[in-house]
Design a protein around this nucleic acid. Structure first.
Lengths: 344, 344
DNA sequence: GTCGGACTTTGAAATGTTTCAGAGAACGTG
DNA sequence: CACGTTCTCTGAAACATTTCAAAGTCCGAC
């Protein structure tokens, strides 16, 4: 009857001696079918090794069972933690999660979005290359539930989930000031990145509100936020005349901080005595560094989980209101700023 | 005409004044339709904002346009690099890649596989929790193209891609011996993991072939292969009586090595002078460590790329033969074993 | 007995594509 | 002007599900 073909509902129905509709009922509302037939159908299903064809289901039912996350940079563990949070929420809602990676390339991002549209996914979470990109508006216009993660869009035409970056900058620099540092570097870039700008802004705010001179908060811009950029920032730092050289650095993410840490130790500096370092994100590897890294923690999994919940609300709740969630970052002090502490 | 509905081929056809079939032809074999109509149809498509419904396409065409990778442990960057390699190959073949994460839980793995089956993905790549699990046989029996990545299955009923772990163990320990170490620790576990066993075996082989006593190669088993396990191994190492204490450690992966490095430096040891450390995998963070880590490099992206090619071959080539690809690992010497070297 | 209701099951329609045999049109050739 | 070719286009069938109105069955109450 079925020669090699993978068995369909029809085959199951035939084998169990019932109609198509009944088999479908067994799968979708088992309570309406009598125990006797249900059993018979279930036996037939396992005997034939039946596996529901999700394409057909989706085509007819009109609703897909997957969410998607387009992450920005696969080499930064931060985004994997966010993805993990999304996955947990998706699992709770019994959905699959499609993870894509734009690798910071707008063109790649567009290709992914296009495919996801074709797939008719139930909702899209994204950390966009450029939050202002028109193809994101396009999505909203089409009515695809959309949540921007770890970024914010100018307008409130979609949900977003992020952390208060200004506050993050404040607490990082406040911590350094408390440790007695009088000259601090801010390392990060490009400053076209909203977050970099905001973290720097927070740093400057608290710095001046502590009565320090703006000249003592030195901005060392970087091209990107990788470990390599951190290393080269370290070299630039070392090249500064001793009088102007900061005794502490606040890096806009942990990758930079890790690079700076490596470069500094390699150059024979003691951390934190010669140079204190604060990172941002608090990825796993921050705590695992040779000198455990002080970092501004983002609730990474929570970010993802909350974003998933928003996208689900938009997908299922007819009177959904867009909202911009903002989490509060938190300083985790470790040995890279606090001498003789062994917090891990 | 279409009230709120997303437009279908039928709508495009109506709007362009052609038949369904012609619209389909424009999408799938543009060469058979005249330039004039093609243009007209294309205009209609953009005007209506038509997006092909992939479910319907797949249902009718019988073939899906996605591959899937079920990764073992999302917290280990190694697997993300593998995934990246797969993604590149998928991109070349114009396929989407579905990334799942079993988090080392067999139950989670099964859920994912089940969904992928329902999705009728074109092929599955997997780093399984247990390469001998019966649900993997199940897949082969169903005829789903399957490739096991970074593991090998006992029998040759499916393709696999891995690295020569015995050789990896040999070159790591050979390197340490060359550096003059007389007592070496092997850190890793559980040894039920095939790879751990093989790396240990390689270590032992070369050690004895160099005429050293088996007593001087100390096996420190761990519960898992995380940074935390590396730290606790470091504590156990420190607890050994000075006479028996190794001067070098070979860790079965980089996470362990990073943990060991952190613990050692925190305890005031100098690396490599007091303790030399070799890792395995050569993840990005190995090179980024405060003391850059010597590691046995696996060609991570290549692994993924090769696996993807195998799965595609199985999916498309009717006389596909299963093969077990084995890559050759390579030692990357850095400062954690070689004093006053600044290789990064 | 018959009726009404509760509980099951059925069969056909619908979903949005692709495919393919064949219908039409256009045109040069004999 | 009939014919064969070549180039385009069409229309219906097929894919595997879900849904839902309607048909059946059973059972206790009157």
């Amino acid at each position: 009857m079925l020669n090699g073909r993978t068995p369909s509902v029809k085959d199951v129905a035939a084998s169990a001696g019932v109609s198509l509709g009944t088999v479908s009922n067994v799968m979708n509302r088992p309570e309406v079918v009598s125990a006797r037939t249900r059993e018979r159908v279930e036996r037939a299903m396992t005997e034939l090794g039946f596996v529901r064809n999700e394409s057909a289901r989706q085509l007819r039912a009109g609703t897909s069972r997957t969410l998607a996350y387009v992450m920005l940079d696969g080499t930064n563990p931060f985004f994997h933690d966010v993805a993990q949070g999304i996955e947990l929420a998706a699992e709770d809602a019994d959905l699959s999660l499609f993870i894509c990676n734009s690798n910071s390339r707008a063109s790649r991002e567009e290709v992914h979005l296009d495919r996801l549209l074709q797939q008719r996914v139930q909702g899209i979470l994204i950390t966009p290359v450029d939050p202002a990109a028109p193809h994101l508006d396009e999505l909203s216009r089409r009515g695809v539930p959309l949540v921007v993660v770890d970024r914010v869009r100018g307008v409130d035409n979609c949900c977003s989930v992020a952390v208060d970056d200004v506050l993050g900058g404040r607490i990082a620099v406040e911590h350094l000031a408390e440790q007695g540092h009088e000259r601090v570097a801010f390392i990060g870039g490009p400053d076209s990145l909203g977050q970099v700008g905001e973290r720097l802004q927070g740093a400057r705010e608290i710095w001046s509100s502590l009565g320090r001179s703006p000249d003592d908060l030195i901005y060392l811009p970087t091209d990107a936020m990788t470990v390599a950029d951190g290393r080269s920032a370290g070299e630039r730092l070392a090249g500064l005349p001793a009088r102007r050289r900061p005794t502490a650095a606040f890096c806009a993410n942990d990758l930079l901080a890790l690079g700076l840490l490596q470069q500094s130790i390699g150059a024979g500096l003691r951390v934190p005595d010669d140079l204190a370092i604060v990172g941002f994100d608090d990825i796993e590897f921050a705590a695992a560094a040779a000198v455990p890294l002080t970092s501004v923690r983002q609730p990474r999994q929570e970010l993802g989980r909350a974003a998933a919940q928003l996208v689900l609300d938009e997908a299922t709740n007819p009177d959904h209101k867009h909202s911009q969630l903002q989490f509060t970052p938190e300083l985790v002090a470790r040995a890279s700023t606090v001498s003789r502490t062994r917090t891990v």
